[in-house]
Design a protein around this nucleic acid. Sequence first.
DNA 1: AAGGTAATTCAACGCGTGTAGAACTCAACG
DNA 2: CGTTGAGTTCTACACGCGTTGAATTACCTT
Lengths: 192, 192
Amino acid sequence: MGRTGRRPGGEDTKGIILAAARAEFGAKGYHQATIRGIAAGAGVDPALIHHYFGSKDDLFAASIDLPLRPAEVAETILAGGIESAGRNITTLFFTVWENPATRDPLMAVLRGAFGTEQGAAVLREFFGTAMLGRVAPQIGGPDAELRASLAVSHLIGVAVLRYVVGFPALVKVPVAQLVDTLAPRIQAYFTE
Amino acid sequence: MGRTGRRPGGEDTKGIILAAARAEFGAKGYHQATIRGIAAGAGVDPALIHHYFGSKDDLFAASIDLPLRPAEVAETILAGGIESAGRNITTLFFTVWENPATRDPLMAVLRGAFGTEQGAAVLREFFGTAMLGRVAPQIGGPDAELRASLAVSHLIGVAVLRYVVGFPALVKVPVAQLVDTLAPRIQAYFTE
DNA sequence: AAGGTAATTCAACGCGTGTAGAACTCAACG
DNA sequence: CGTTGAGTTCTACACGCGTTGAATTACCTT
């Protein structure tokens, strides 16, 4: 693979690079991830990444373009009314996180939120429009916004401890039990 | 301040460096923080940091040496029995976070948990001994460990959104109201 | 007053990084 | 079969980083 010039066979090199970028950004965070590392992971020269995506910032932006539309998410959560929203959002949250394919970009977002203002903005915007824009109005009351935010914070806290920090008690618990224990607490923020 | 050699006046330069390091590590995380930046913040030459603390890793280790002893924390939480532990831990948590002096090292730990395995280990160990070792036994039941961990995850989630991500709804709410809304939910994990 | 020791800075090294442009090779199309 | 254009790599630059060893100044002891 040392030779120069175009490769034979029409592979989706751009997609391979993007996948490698998501894995690297997710595993190491924005700053610790390197273009050279991503290139190595994709089996490609670093300059090719630049050719396709431009700067590192642009590649990161492409990496955290979530395959989750806030509108769809809100719809899924609210299917069945506000009384089942707690279980719906909890189930959805961990379904997405436990799926390796969707985990990488989420990890990239979460780690990015800590390293770059851009990443933090993505997180704010996503939960802002999905949760506060669509779910909070269904809760009602003056502190609906606060309660919805606290529900989100709890989910994110579990994700941080389970997937990033590796807190043993939360790592070893099966997803089903985790959802069963957590969902009622989330629900309590919506209807109580 | 351009001259070389020892300075007149017996300032606590080592302490100044440590404070600057905590601020920088807290603001930017381990990797994005630089020795040169910390030195500039302390008004000092980069080499001096090396002279006092050794490598960057060593400086970081010194920075996240929390002024919180797990034993004391557990004692404060459990004063008044398990029935008031929810409010106690919530109040303590935000008292410490809202105090600028203690916020910096906490921020350094939290951001460090995302950037370095060392930081993640600090978080695991602290909450592991303080919460799981001392508080969980007072809860009782087979899933006591899980419930205590979920309580911790909720607090950390709020800290992440309020202090790192800057989630508007959680930033603008006064601490008192935050504690009032949150404490019952934490308590529910302990006694219910 | 003198000598030793701790505090502090200077200057520099080697390394890994993001990025740029030129060179090369394959595929598509006439 | 030749030409064009997209795909891909090579080489190189300039920069900021952590780290080091020597040089310089002030305080402390005797």
